[in-house]
Write a protein that binds this DNA or RNA. Structure first.
Lengths: 248, 248
DNA sequence: CGTTTTTATGCGTGTTTGTGCGATAAAGTT
DNA sequence: AACTTTATCGCACAAACACGCATAAAAACG
């Protein structure tokens, strides 16, 4: 087996499972540990994966998990403020969950009169502080990880809703691959959310740009607004500016 | 499992639940206590969490609900502890909202394996901290006052549920008038909840005893358990002891 | 073609890292 | 005060690693 073939094999494993163990690769590829180590080192040099004691991890896996550190709070507040501009009186809005959405909700103008559907209990509680906002919480199985409701019941209920705007957080966004996710249920959920809103705004801190995960939610064309904490002319956004997408 | 993966897992737990117990992590990750402790120590060194006796806390710890300002909290805790005795493995439980129920949920045993339906987002979030509890949040219009979902949709969904036990807070209870309430919607809601559970437990701080409000939810006979913070032989309860009612 | 250079791989050896165990100490609980 | 749970420390051991060296195949060159 050629070295290049091995590298490809390793990358496939990584993309599939988000991780590989050195020892597994030794067995699967039938080469010495040293060879695998050298392979991994070379892939690290090419910036394709992340090496740890015992094996290697996918780059996207890595960045998709330390995102929930609420340390990017400033960024999320900035995003929230921008997102508020999209909301007008009388609108029907559908939101997902997550800390970014929560920061957005906290920054809505007090007098706003609108209808909000949400799958996030915490968002619902926050929205309840506004007197003129009607809040409908979409019920179903409750996900311990992402703190939103999910599952068939949620999707059924979503199918009955017609919203003007859908606001969702992101696991990953990529100019070619579009919106992607790691978990099947969340993937299905996001698809359903997209389907019931006229327009969709994606709230996305910059570190989640240019990442593609296993499951595709939608192509980039299905998104109306991309909201990041970056300046409009920041170079990280250039690939997105080329698309038909409003960037805030 | 790789160390880095464990660290990510721990951080996810922390960001989700604001806290982790060392003993839980030992079980979940199937490694020795020492390993978990070292993991936590390393995460502390990276400034990612606070370590405390028994586990660790999120750096940005903030409970969605400020415990200390809860009215008559001690009584509610006492009630919560008593209510926990009613819960057994495998049960299907339906709960309402309110601070008393919340104190109850916080005192459930860690390993409990059960299914909980609830109309309260805050209760759902709290329940999500238990790994073996399946949480179903019943969705609908969200009430700004009582912080629970209500309305036709909720009642429809309730009608499809069959629960072993329903736990609800009280506005008022009276030995002759039974359970009563002031608001039509809440009244309807409680009737629907009662209807779908085999047994019902009413959590009630003593000051709400012997009060009757405008709208009747049910006669006292429809209730299986009355849980107050008082001793079993307290004289305020004598009128209730005469009824067919288990008093805790 | 033969010789040299480069590249890829494996082996041996010593080092580092990760983990669990036991004893002891400290912190909570009743 | 007695008891239980959690922490800490030193140690042991295995797995993973880095480095130098040897070897052989592949590529380059005259």
């Amino acid at each position: 087996m050629l070295k290049k073939e091995r590298h490809d094999f390793i990358m496939r494993q990584i993309n599939l499972h988000n991780r590989v163990l050195t020892s597994d690769l030794v067995q699967l590829l039938n080469v010495s540990e040293d060879t695998i180590r050298r392979d991994l080192q070379e892939l690290v040099d090419e910036n394709l994966l992340y090496k740890v004691h015992g094996g290697a991890l996918s780059k996207s896996y890595h960045s998709s998990f330390d995102d929930s550190t609420v340390y990017a709070r400033d960024s999320k507040i900035a995003i929230g403020k921008k997102a508020v501009q999209l909301i007008k009186d009388g609108m029907v809005v559908l939101t997902g969950g997550g800390t970014t959405i929560l920061e957005f909700v906290k920054r809505l103008p007090q007098g706003l009169s609108a209808t909000f559907f949400t799958i996030s209990p915490l968002v619902a509680v926050e929205l309840a502080k506004y007197n003129n906002i009607e809040v409908i919480l979409i019920g179903g199985l409750f996900s311990k990880n992402s703190q939103v409701t999910y599952g068939g019941q949620v999707i059924t209920q979503l199918s009955e809703i017609k919203a003007d705007l859908c606001l969702m957080g992101t696991s990953a966004i990529h100019p070619d691959e579009g919106l992607t996710d790691t978990y099947w249920e969340i993937n299905q959920l996001k698809k359903a959310m997209l389907a019931c809103a006229k327009k969709t705004a994606v709230l996305c801190i910059s570190e989640k740009l240019d990442i593609a995960l296993r499951l595709r939610v939608c192509p980039i064309e299905s998104i109306s607004y991309l909201i990041t904490e970056l300046d409009l002319d920041h170079e990280s956004l250039s690939r997105y500016r080329e698309k038909e997408l409003n960037i805030l």
